[in-house]
């Protein structure tokens, strides 16, 4: 990816290989020793940990996808018969139920992720920008917005499932018993509505994170910029559009990606909301794979599905990074 590196001029960054000429020889020596090796030393702990916890298990996981790993062989993997590409064939045979369900689940997950990330980001940005200037109660409100994020997933999601119950939940109590908007009590955890239920719960849980990240990013915008703009006669809205939003771009670039990957692979929210099996309309892929590997002892197939998912996410992420880098460079 040399192209991506090139579009980012870094002429101004400190080059450890070229120490300022004023330094004494002894210092220069240590600087040189530290110089080229230093970045590697800095990333070493991260690298080692990622290798141990992610990369190696991931490699094993990829290996699993080529095995027929079931209850018969899980105890001693050497006895697992090789499956070649059978697991993959099963997963992408969209004419058979397994493939169909996977594809269906994939589309559901895509729609869910787009909606959830979009809304979370929108709410987060709105709240961060609107709470930027001081007003009475701002601190309280900021804290309140962070509360959903501070609750353990289980507690938060079980509360939602509780208030979305058809017969006893708060939501139906309000729209049916109090506002009389409809006579039939709608289901929120079954059928088509369950999709919106999971989106809302997911947004509720993740927008505070967007809010937090953006609030922090806003602190880094120098006030001079606003003052200069104000001197030029720019109004509040123009200041937001011309200064605030563009300055958030580097953080947004990462934040959206973070939210995307986080939401796409989120296991906890659907698992607590729907239990081991989600309604077809809200059959998110993480639960789907759990069900087709863990619950049914079919680890090879589940691994193959995960590898396909990994490839998809890699492609999306790479495309996203290339696109945003280029746009950032143009700006």
């Amino acid at each position: 990816m040399p192209a991506a590196a090139k579009v980012r001029p870094r002429a101004d960054h400190p080059r450890p290989v070229a120490p300022p000429p004023r330094e004494r020889p002894a210092r220069r020596l240590t600087a040189r020793l530290r110089g080229p090796a230093l970045p590697y030393l800095l990333i070493l702990p991260a690298l080692a940990l990622e290798l141990l916890i992610h990369i190696v298990p991931m490699a094993v996981g990829i290996g699993m996808s080529f095995l027929e790993l079931t209850q018969f062989s899980i105890r001693d993997w050497t006895t697992a018969p090789g499956a070649g590409l059978d697991n993959y064939r099963l997963a992408i045979d969209f004419n058979a139920p397994v493939g169909q369900e996977l594809l269906h689940s994939f589309w559901i997950t895509c729609a869910y992720t787009l909606l959830s990330v979009g809304l979370s980001w929108l709410l987060g940005t709105a709240a961060a920008v609107l709470t930027q200037g001081p007003f009475p109660g701002r601190g309280l409100l900021r804290t309140l917005f962070l509360v959903p994020y501070a609750l353990p997933v289980y507690a938060a999601v079980i509360t939602w499932s509780f208030l979305l119950q058809r017969d006893n939940g708060l939501l139906n109590h309000v729209i049916v018993d109090q506002l009389h908007l409809t006579h039939d009590r709608p289901f929120w955890l079954l059928g088509g509505n369950s999709f919106f239920a999971i989106v809302v719960v997911s947004v509720w849980r993740s927008w505070p994170f967007a809010f937090l990240a953006l609030t922090a990013a806003l602190q880094n915008i120098p006030r001079d910029l606003y003052e200069a703009a104000a001197l030029d006669g720019a109004g509040m809205w123009q200041q937001i559009r011309r200064i605030t939003l563009p300055s958030l771009r580097p953080v947004n670039q990462v934040l959206l990606l973070v939210l995307f990957l986080w939401t796409f692979n989120d296991f906890n929210t659907p698992y607590v909301l729907f239990g081991r099996s989600a309604p077809a309309e809200a059959d998110l892929i993480s639960i789907h794979i759990y069900e087709s590997s863990f619950v049914t002892w079919n680890f090879g197939t589940g691994s193959a599905m995960s590898v396909l998912l990994l490839l998809f996410l890699l492609v999306v992420t790479a495309g996203y990074l290339l696109a945003t880098r280029r746009r950032t460079a143009d700006a």
């Binding site: 990622e50 992610h54 990369i55 991931m58 692979n265 296991f267 759990y290 590997s293 680890f299």
Partner: peptide, 16 residues
């Protein structure tokens, strides 16, 4: 590479 680790469903590297 660091980012790509976030793309593997947790359920699969749980056992490894």
């Amino acid at each position: 590479a660091v980012l790509s680790t976030q793309m593997f469903p947790g359920i699969l590297f749980l056992l490894p």
